[in-house]
Amino acid sequence: MKPDRAWRLIRMSITALVLYALWLVFTASADLFSLLTGAVGSLAVAALTHGQFIAGHEASLRSFAPRPLALAGFLAFLIYSMYASSFAVLAAVITGRISPRVVHFRTRLNSDLARMVIANAITLTPGTITLDLNDDHLTVHWLLATTRHSRAAGDLVKGRFEERLKRVWS
C-alpha cells in the first residue's frame, strides 16, 4: 500500500473514532440499533470530512495528537484566565478607562493546530481579540494595553498560553 493511501486511511479512521465517541456520549444508550446507526453515520461522515479534520499535509500524528494531561491543564488555565480578564474588562466598562491598541507579535509554536488554538485562546479571553493570524504572525487588538513594545506585549498577551501549549503539542 502506498504511504499516501495509508495516511489517508489512518486519518479517516481517527475521524471516525472521534465521531463515534461523540455519538456514544450524546446518545448514551447501548441499544443495538443506535450503535449500528452511529457506526454507519460516523464512517460516512468521516469519509467525507477527514480532509478538514486532519489536513493531508500534517506530517505525522505527533503534530496533531495532544498530550491529555497537558491539555487538561491548559483548559483549566484557559478558564481561569477567561474569568480573570472578564473581571478586568468589567471594571473597564464601569470606569470607562480603556487604552485600546493594536499589537503585533510572533508565536514560537510550530504546528498549525497549536497556532489556531493560541489564536482562539487569545480571542476567548475578553480584552484581547485576534485580528489576523498569518503564518506565525499574530495581529491582536488589546483593550487594556500597557505597552507598545512588541515582545513585551507578546509576553503579556500570549506568554503563559504559549508555554502551556508547548507542552500539549511539541
Binding site: P126, G127, I129
Partner: peptide, 11 residues
C-alpha cells in the same frame, strides 16, 4: 464594542 460583547457572549 466587541470586547464588551465577548463579555456577555463568552463569559
Amino acid at each position: 464594542k466587541m470586547h464588551a460583547s465577548s463579555l456577555c457572549g463568552t463569559t
